[in-house]
Nucleic acid binder design. Structure first.
Lengths: 258, 258
DNA sequence: CGCTCCCTTGACGACTTTCAATGATCGTGG
DNA sequence: CCACGATCATTGAAAGTCGTCAAGGGAGCG
């Protein structure tokens, strides 16, 4: 199932946004790839910031060895797989899910360009969650030996701590236990993530299904839909399916924390 | 308000459990303290595992400089305070809370002996949460400069990642959105934490108030109470206030995941 | 063009919250 | 050591919310 979208907005600025049905091109000149990847790694949330000279070269070589393309709906890594690399997300988006014993999956988070995939795993030989592409997605591959670098260690601590803080934010959201507040928080959060990446905070397309949002928020997809309808009735947003338009972001924020 | 309990079970094995109304004694011989603290640091979840020789000495000196005693109900660090140390919890217990703008607090987690306090903060100059003692509590103090050590960096990554994984577990629990399941998961989790520390998994005293549990789980304290009553009626546990007895832990686990 | 998957909406039932009042426990001060 | 007060825990009844089940509509893919 490839449901990549014409208006796909989850694309790293500076990279061409891929049109519908466009498959990932494996061969770009390594020169360009190098520049792009280097660039990507210095964006917020990206890996090395205090790296220099020979270290950088070594790091970049490792990273560039393979950029994995993943099609919409495909699995990047599966829970339980042996872990031997981290990834940085260059373009596209992923969901992190926990595969439960009963066969259902529970969505634990969403990742956008610039995110590092695998931050919960250090010290673990095995992936603890499954990562699935929400749309056609490009990643950089960071072999674990490269991570041994001391300068990277420092960077890694910062990244993992940052992720941990954002998980506490998620806890705050989930513990509110009020459907409309959870949904509003989610929408505001998505808006912020898009804005961080140079996209519109007021007008975007959610790359994930309502079922995924519902799973993430601990609700049913019907409730998510109903809640969004209610918000639309109050004029706080407009929507058509996963296309969201927020006329007044501050109003939405105020209403959320009312 | 000092509500330390005669049957206080949240005490590091090998340390004398303090009797009711016992205040923390500041002066134990530093020799003993050294041995204890050294010991503490090598327990699971504790800081350095790959440290040796001169490094250890330097580290231990830093850690031992001040062991902060905190009385039940007192604040260890407040959200927004400048951060210049981590702590390891030696005896007692803490709650991590987020102070909301409206004056309410939301409980984000509980910490028991062996835990490192401040894992979400690296890269942040400021504490992002408030830590409050649930009972009279002893801590080791780890100045940030000590953390600069490369061997410790590695250890720190492992610890933060571990905490991150446990936060994902929390997400799974919260997203279930079924009161009794949340409470059961919480009880089983507490049981496991006590067992890890050499205490009974079947019979324990919860150090936190029902209001704290409710805040943590995103429920009302009345609902927590009612749910526990229901579990008691089904014979899955006995309780009197915060004293919990679990006759058949496996039965409780099975029922939780039914 | 038809299928499948996803989103939307309705109605009913179960559960949680809310509001309120009582009972228990702990800490304090006499 | 006892008694009092404050905080915390328990229980009841009513109201609101969300989950469940069901059916219809829409968009994309083969």
């Amino acid at each position: 199932m490839s449901n990549s979208d014409a208006n796909s907005i989850i694309t790293w600025p500076g990279l061409p946004s891929h049109s519908p049905n466009t498959r990932i091109r494996r061969d770009r000149s390594s020169q360009t790839a190098s520049a792009d990847c280097y660039n990507c790694l210095f964006k917020p949330h990206c890996l090395p910031a205090e790296i220099d000279g020979e270290r950088l070269t070594r790091f970049a070589r490792g990273v560039l060895r393979s950029r994995r393309p993943v099609k919409a709906g495909d699995v990047l890594v599966r829970q339980g797989d042996a872990m031997n690399a981290l990834y940085t997300l260059r373009a596209g988006s992923l969901k992190a899910v926990f595969d439960e014993a009963n066969g259902y999956e529970r969505v634990l988070g969403f990742r956008f360009p610039g995110a590092v995939i695998g931050l919960a795993e250090p010290g673990n030989a095995v992936w603890t969650r499954t990562f699935i592409a929400l749309e056609d997605t490009w990643l950089c591959h960071i072999p674990l030996p490269v991570i041994g670098d001391d300068a990277l260690q420092r960077q890694l601590i910062r990244l993992v701590s940052e992720r941990l803080r954002s998980e506490y934010e998620t806890h705050l959201m989930l513990a509110v236990n009020d459907g409309s507040r959870k949904v509003m928080t989610f929408i505001v959060e998505m808006s912020a993530r898009f804005a961080e990446r140079g996209l519109s905070a007021h007008r975007f397309h959610l790359p994930m299904h309502y079922m995924d949002i519902a799973s993430y928020l601990g609700m049913r997809h019907e409730s998510v839909s109903r809640t969004l309808t209610k918000l639309q009735d109050r004029g706080l947003l407009h929507r058509k399916g996963r296309h969201i338009v927020i006329p007044d972001l501050d109003a939405l924020r105020r209403f959320k924390d009312d």
